[in-house]
C-alpha cells in the first residue's frame, strides 16, 4: 500500500510546494479574493439589494476562489507543464496518469482549504453571520466538490488543447467572463434578462447560487443549480479526458 501511495504523496507535496511558491498563483487564489471581499463588502459600489453586502460577497468570493484555483491555476500550470515536456517525461516514470491526476486534484482541494481558512475569518471580521441564517456546510461542500470537478476539467480541457501561452490567455479571459456573469461580485438579478438566463446555465453562477443558498440566507439550493453543476462536471471531465494530450 505504501508502495502505491508513496509516489502520490510525493507528487502532492511537489505540486503543493510549486503552487504555493508561485507568486502569481497566490495573487490569483488568495490576494484577489481577499481584496475583492474587503473592497466590495465595505465600499457599497455594487448594490446587493435587501441582503447585507457581506452576506452576499462572502459566498460570492468563495465561489470565485474555487474557480480561481480549480480552473485558472490548475489549467495554466498544467498547460505550461505540457509545454515544458514535464508531462511527457512523467509519462515514462512509474508515477502514472491516475496518480498524477490524483495529486493535482488533491492539491486543488488543499489550496481551497487554505483559501477558505483565509477568507472565512476575513468574512467574520466584516460581520458575516452564516450561523444565524441557517447555513448548510454539507451542501456547500458538495457544491464545492462538483464545481471543482467542473472547473478543473475545463482548465485541463483548455490545457490539453491549447498551446501554453494561448491557454494562459484563454483561462484568464474565461475567468473574467465568469467572474462578471457568475453572480460572484455582481448579483445575477442586476444582469439584463437574457444575459442572466445565459449566466444561469454556466457553472460559475450555479456554484454561486449554491453558495449563496447554503452560506448566505437565500434559502434552499435551487435544483437547477445542482443540475447545471453536475452536467458541467460530467461533460467537462469527459471532454478533458478525450482531448487531453500529454505531449
Amino acid at each position: 500500500m505504501t508502495r502505491l501511495l508513496r509516489p502520490l504523496v510525493a507528487q502532492i507535496g511537489a505540486e503543493t510546494y510549486m503552487t504555493l511558491r508561485r507568486g502569481e498563483t497566490l495573487l490569483l487564489t488568495v490576494g484577489i479574493p481577499v481584496a475583492f471581499l474587503v473592497f466590495f463588502s465595505t465600499s457599497h459600489v455594487i448594490s446587493t439589494g435587501t441582503q447585507s453586502s457581506v452576506a452576499f460577497f462572502v459566498p460570492g468570493i468563495l465561489s470565485l476562489a474555487v474557480m480561481s484555483t480549480s480552473m485558472v491555476s490548475l489549467g495554466i500550470a498544467t498547460g505550461f507543464e505540457r509545454g515544458y515536456g514535464v508531462l511527457k517525461r512523467l509519462g515514462s516514470t512509474p508515477l502514472g496518469r491516475t496518480r498524477l491526476l490524483g495529486a493535482k486534484v488533491s492539491t486543488v482541494f488543499l489550496v481551497e482549504v487554505v483559501q477558505a481558512a483565509v477568507l472565512v475569518p476575513v468574512g467574520y471580521a466584516l460581520g458575516w453571520d452564516p450561523i444565524g441564517s441557517g447555513a448548510s456546510a454539507g451542501e456547500a461542500l458538495a457544491a464545492a466538490v462538483l464545481a471543482t470537478v467542473a472547473f478543473g476539467s475545463l482548465g485541463l480541457l483548455m490545457a490539453g488543447v491549447l498551446r501554453a501561452e494561448l491557454n494562459l490567455a484563454a483561462a484568464n479571459g474565461l475567468y473574467l467572463v465568469l467572474l462578471l456573469l457568475g453572480g460572484m461580485v455582481v448579483p445575477l438579478a442586476k444582469l439584463p434578462g437574457g444575459l442572466a438566463a445565459l449566466a444561469r446555465a454556466l457553472p460559475a453562477a450555479a456554484l454561486s447560487d449554491a453558495f449563496h443558498a447554503t452560506l448566505g440566507n437565500a434559502g434552499a439550493v435551487p435544483l437547477e443549480a445542482w443540475v447545471v453543476l453536475a452536467a458541467w462536471a460530467v461533460a467537462a471531465a469527459g471532454a478533458a479526458s478525450l482531448t487531453f494530450r500529454w505531449e
Binding site: 511537489a14 511558491r21 505550461f80 515544458y84 515536456g85 511527457k88 517525461r89 516514470t93 512509474p94
Partner: peptide, 17 residues
C-alpha cells in the same frame, strides 16, 4: 517504465524545482 530511464531532447523538468 520502472525498468527504463529516459532523457528527453528538451525540457521534461518542472522549471521551479
Amino acid at each position: 517504465v520502472p525498468r527504463i530511464g529516459v532523457m528527453l531532447q528538451r525540457g521534461g523538468v518542472y522549471p521551479m524545482l
